[in-house]
């Protein structure tokens, strides 16, 4: 599957994919930034509330951005659909509103797909890869 970059401003284009986030009964069409620097997938907390995703009360993490400000994140499990592939993901949910789209990180994205980015061509090639542990 090949997707296009998104042009955000005249100076900024980003590798952002169309994704579907699902619970048992609901789904939200959303967008996710391909981010090999993130160990987990991260989505906005409002997504979890809308889908009714149960967030772990025990497994919390504090996430710090480059601004230095810390926000609380909680783990939850949902189904992520990219192209025609649906699979369960354990992701972090946090108030990342200022970041504006989800983050597709190593666990839950790069462990499912081989990914090739070409900024010059503005393309994101995403191909299924064998499951790795």
């Amino acid at each position: 599957m090949t997707f296009s970059y998104q042009r955000i401003t005249s100076q900024i284009s980003r590798p952002i994919l169309p994704i579907i986030l699902r619970s048992n009964t609901k789904f939200v069409a959303y967008w996710g930034l391909v981010d090999s620097g993130s160990d987990y997938c991260v989505f906005d907390q409002e997504i979890a509330e809308t889908l009714g995703v149960r967030l772990s009360k025990e497994e919390k993490v504090n996430i710090k951005g480059v601004s230095g400000k810390s926000i609380e994140g909680k783990f939850g499990i949902l189904v992520l659909k990219i192209g025609d592939k649906n699979y369960k993901v354990k992701a972090v949910f946090a108030k990342i509103g200022k970041f504006n789209h989800g983050i597709l990180g190593t666990k839950g994205f790069f462990d499912q797909f081989d990914v090739k980015l070409s900024y010059r061509k503005r393309t994101i090639e995403v191909n299924r890869s064998p499951q790795v542990n």
Partner: peptide, 21 residues
């Protein structure tokens, strides 16, 4: 079932991401 996105107050370049502390 629209495609949704949250638009930030300011459009700034991203340098690095979040980290768990």
């Amino acid at each position: 079932h629209p495609a949704v996105l949250e638009i930030p107050d300011k459009i700034l370049p991203i340098i690095g991401g979040y980290r768990i502390v």
